[in-house]
Amino acid sequence: MESSQTLLKLTEELQKLPGIGKKTAERLVYFLLKAGKKEAQSLALRLNELAEKVILCKICGGITEANPCAICSSSARDKSMICVVEQPLDIAIFERTNRFQGLYHVLMGTLSPLEGVGPESLRIDELVERVKDGKVKEVILATNPTMDGEATSLYISKQIKEFGVRTTRIARGVPVGSDLEFVDEITLMKSLEGRQDI
């Protein structure tokens, strides 16, 4: 590998990707070499398109090629509901359910005092601005049920309380298809707290 600077540089770039170590990066480089010029150029083209065309929606912060994104500009979506998520990828996860018809808001992370991440590092002010205009009736807080995710939800609920919108948190409880025997105490406790009439 040391004989070619080009290979070395590409290996270094690939190593920056999550879950890719030196050996995997080298394997990928060799694969591309063996696959031929066409494959490598096609990959390069797609990577270039990704860098040039894919942007974040100025309203929700989701991944898009048009600004605002298809969800934010759609007249079919319910503009009175905003689902708040941590990362752009979370939008795709909710969209897979085909049930939620409202809008989204991506925070780009969670509060994390230990990492020095405060509210100013997140897109919380942008959310408050969206809520202020009076059209939003409900904000669904869909941050992960981790300690940081819970803290972020608490913080946001405090920030938007004064605007009189309904603030809800996604339910936490027993996963569908699981067995109670293997559910941990905290999840079970949360499922009891969030029980519903049937």
Partner: peptide, 24 residues
């Protein structure tokens, strides 16, 4: 196995901040 759960900390932002400080 859970020995002592401290879910009360996550239910209060100020407690969460102070507990994070203890961890640091």
């Amino acid at each position: 196995e859970m020995s002592t759960s401290r879910t009360g900390i996550s239910a209060d932002l100020e407690k969460f901040y102070h507990a994070s400080y203890m961890v640091e």
